[in-house]
Nucleic acid binder design. Structure first.
Lengths: 337, 337
DNA sequence: AGTCGCCATGTGAGCGTTAACATGCTAGGA
DNA sequence: TCCTAGCATGTTAACGCTCACATGGCGACT
């Protein structure tokens, strides 16, 4: 387990080498004020010489703080980028925490309970939950009684809910609707995501709200499951009577939509405009490159950790919204005459 | 921190309630053999009643085992699916370990050192490293002196290297070459990934090996960076003098290749066949759907954890290869006449 | 019938750290 | 000059658990 010696050096070894007591070593390690500079340097030198690392288990035992943050991701591969996870991890580490993760691609109550159980066994100090639907949100609400918790989710908040951070999905969908309205589209349709996903519902809400405020009635929503295949199938049902624009609830479905139109010889955007949501990797190289809504996962992740740490400190944390932006590419244009 | 009481119950609380000593509680928790059945049940009941959870820090302190496995991912968003991470996490948890992760999208020696430092601070018992290039592999080799470690990597192993698990990239590239040869292609070109990636190099090797064994000389390799944009640029250089088939080193680049051909009015596969690698989500809905090589990340992740746990137990672990399969779709066919 | 040995359980120590308190020293004000 | 405040450091006691050993009781062997 160790390179040279037999067992890892402890504080006492460092203390002996530096000619001080273990408590002074502890003070140096924890940046206590009352340590003479010369002593601090001697201790630091001893630490470096021995390759000492503080035992976090012992520390956790006595401080009752594990220094661990838990992250639960419940997104599937089809939905918004997993890059959020990387940002969360990096930000948490930068804030001085260890990070433990659990993926729940297909969340069930049992799985969620197992995950939270594992987290409690580790004495996590706080949890970030990426909650896509009600099962996850429900489990998170229950766990909130026992541990500080923050949700990344576009669910509609209720009183007593844990703090919430999310990209404003409704605003994103409004951006798309506004964009199409501005170009004169009126015969438009939304290909919605699965209704048990908060994101899907929020995008539906934003879409209809913006259109109805403009006095435009869209076609009835189509139903997809986030997958490109479902986008393909849905688009084929449109071929007999084309709208002038299709708003797919995510880029994967938009990809399928593009394929269906390409196969049928429908020009995009000449015949139909197509807009997606997410700006996944490669969306700029679809054929044609996809107009879509970009979410700032970097900002999302940073704010989530900041808010969680603040909440752990007892602060009241307001709900935070990150604004998405529309990225215009070649897949959209004015409606056909 | 706790719902009702003041502080979390400890073993002594359980012991008192069950009318036994703390040591008997410990024995029940650790499945020691010599405990009478009736006693065990009494203890279990007390545990349930109090909602007792064992303190893993105290346990780790005395056993010198943290129960934590570390995972380092170094893939970028362009490269093979991050789904490996989810499989690793799930498998490790099923094996009774906690999991801590660190993402290193742009690995530098400093970052790697920081990550391994953090892992050592947590006293991880073992580490899985997804090593895409030399920086990561080098850091992993160095860390291997201090902690059991397993690499998921297609690097060429050297004596003394940590155990290795990977999908056989070379075999995957050979599958593509063989597939094209069988259909009569001889004017073929490979769009390679960045040469500092092991996967890219292995795919280049397999491609050239299979072709040269068949006596076919491909065009000089083109250079990409895994991104769809780089695939697009590379394909445009081919337009003046088209080969009959392009093998892109990953699906993202293949996506860009398809766009370049589509924009130029080159039919796929009528004019050129295109083959990718990875079978990313959505590859079946490219236009046309992409022939590609699928890697079994599920098996990869499972074997990685199995092998790591075996290695932690002191077993000698041989290098393991997972076989990829070719998935034929509409983007490839016989060469143009 | 006596003793050996196994089984079920209890007792005490210690893992490496931090918190609380104790100590000795230096300097400044009365 | 003495007393006191405050700084630098040391000493001791937990934290909650497992390990090693101690103990008492009961059955099986001679």
């Amino acid at each position: 387990m160790v390179a040279n010696g037999r067992t890892r050096p402890g504080m006492n070894d460092v203390a002996r080498l530096a000619g001080v007591s273990h408590q002074t070593v502890s003070r140096v390690l924890n940046d206590h004020p009352n340590v003479r500079e010369s002593t601090r340097e001697r201790v630091l030198a001893a630490i470096a010489e021995l390759g000492y690392r503080r035992n976090s288990a012992a520390r956790a035992l006595v401080t009752h703080r594990s220094g661990i943050l838990g992250i639960i991701t419940s997104g599937s591969v089809h939905s918004g980028p997993a890059s959020t996870l990387a940002v969360l991890e990096r930000t948490a580490r930068a804030a001085g925490y260890f990070v433990t993760v659990a993926a729940a691609p297909h969340p069930t109550p049992e799985l969620m309970q197992e995950i939270f159980g594992s987290f409690m066994d580790q004495s996590v100090e706080g949890v970030v939950v990426i909650a896509q639907g009600d099962e996850v949100a429900g489990a998170a609400r229950a766990a909130f009684a026992e541990v500080p918790l923050l949700m990344i989710s576009s669910l509609t908040p209720e009183p007593g809910d844990p703090p919430l951070v999310c990209v404003d999905q409704e605003a994103g969908a409004r951006l798309v609707a506004r964009y199409l309205l501005d170009r004169g589209h009126t015969d438009v349709v939304h290909l919605a995501g699965p209704p048990d996903w908060f994101d899907a519902r929020a995008r539906v809400r934003g879409w209809h709200a913006e259109l109805s405020e403009a006095g435009v009635a869209p076609r009835p929503d189509l139903a997809g499951d986030w997958s490109a295949g479902s986008g393909y199938e849905a688009a084929r049902t449109l071929l007999a009577d084309l709208p002038t624009a299709v708003f797919a609830a995510n880029d994967q479905m938009a990809l399928g939509v593009l394929r269906a139109f390409a196969e049928a010889g429908v020009a995009v955007p000449g015949g139909v405009s197509v807009v997606g949501f997410d700006d996944i990797v490669g969306a700029d190289n679809f054929f044609p490159p996809l107009t879509t809504v970009r979410q700032d996962f970097e900002a999302l992740g940073r704010r989530a950790i900041d808010a969680l740490v603040a909440a752990m400190g007892g602060a009241a944390v307001p709900r935070e919204l990150v604004e998405p932006v529309l990225v215009e590419r070649a897949s959209s244009g004015p409606p056909r005459p």
